[in-house]
């Protein structure tokens, strides 16, 4: 939500990248008690989407609305004073155990999607806010277990991965089950199709799948896949996803989704999949 608006200015990206430590967390579902306490300390206002600044030691640096995001962030930097040796409490063992990171031995796939056709796009000159939101690509992560990697190496697409892929990336594959799903791997070439249709109406999707899978000594070295086809969901409830806009028109759109093997040490790969919103959801997600 809001990425397309905040970071459409390259100067904002550069300022945040070089002058701040950026952190994004989903506070609405779960946060370690120590971090909840920290948010209280900096007088974080809570609620839905917020951009807020603070120091490492716990001093809030309120963002005052200004003529532009860039001006707001520059004002924060003007008010910032480095703190000598701020006290930072380490997380308790229990809090650490509840961190929603990719479990050991899992691989991470980046999932990116966008509407290719069929959505009525607002002109950017007249609707700079909503127009940008409509065009923003969606992003999620998908975890792949070690035994699933081994199955892929044998040329099999395991059922557990099918289920996690086609129900766990729930913004796109929003139905709990599919009518037809065929995925085959032959000589590293992945192909197939997926079709899901809601019982009660016209919502559903039908996509072709094509990709490439490579493994080396039990390690996944390549997973590139694209799903492309028709998609309709007028019941989508999301926070700014372009699929919200695609659904609003009550029409079928052409959607493309890419899956790409990530370096699991990348910071972006550390963000949990959308379906993992609380620690208790991890087990259900990894063992669907």
């Amino acid at each position: 939500m809001g990425r397309a608006l905040i970071f459409s200015d390259p100067k904002v990206v550069e300022l945040v990248r070089t002058q701040f430590v950026a952190c994004a967390v989903r506070t609405g579902w779960y946060l370690a008690p120590e971090e909840k306490e920290f948010l209280k300390q900096i007088n974080h206002p809570g609620g839905t989407f917020r951009m807020y600044a603070c120091t490492a030691g716990g001093k809030g640096l309120p963002i005052v609305r200004s003529k532009s995001r860039l001006a707001e962030l520059e004002a924060v930097l003007d008010n910032f004073e480095p703190e000598p040796n701020p006290k930072i409490l380490a997380l308790s063992a229990e809090s650490e155990s509840l961190e929603m990171r990719p479990p050991a031995d899992t691989e991470v796939l980046y999932v990116v999607w966008n509407v290719l056709d069929g959505m009525e796009l607002l002109p950017l000159d007249k609707h700079p806010v909503y127009g940008k939101l409509q065009r923003e690509a969606g992003f999620d992560r998908l975890w792949v277990r070690k035994d699933e990697v081994q199955a892929l190496a044998r040329g099999e697409f395991p059922e557990s991965l099918k289920k996690r892929m086609f129900t766990g990336v729930h913004q796109v594959f929003f139905l709990p089950e599919w009518k037809k799903l065929v995925v085959t791997i032959e000589d590293g070439r992945l192909s197939g199709s997926v079709h899901a249709q809601a019982e009660s109406g016209k919502n559903g999707y039908q996509m072709d799948l094509l990709g490439a899978v490579e493994t080396n000594q039990g390690k996944l070295t390549r997973f590139d896949m694209v799903a492309k086809g028709t998609w309709r969901n007028d019941q989508v409830s999301a926070y700014g996803s372009n699929l919200t806009w695609a659904g609003k028109g009550d029409r079928e759109v052409t959607l493309a989704v890419s899956f790409t093997l990530a370096d699991r040490n990348d910071l972006l790969a550390q963000t949990p999949p959308s379906a993992v919103n609380v620690p208790q959801a991890m087990d259900r997600y990894i063992n669907p």
Partner: peptide, 16 residues
């Protein structure tokens, strides 16, 4: 450096 914190019910890096 100061911290720029993005918080919410949804995740800034999730979904769309």
């Amino acid at each position: 450096k100061p911290i720029l914190l993005f918080t919410g019910n949804g995740h800034l890096l999730a979904c769309g």
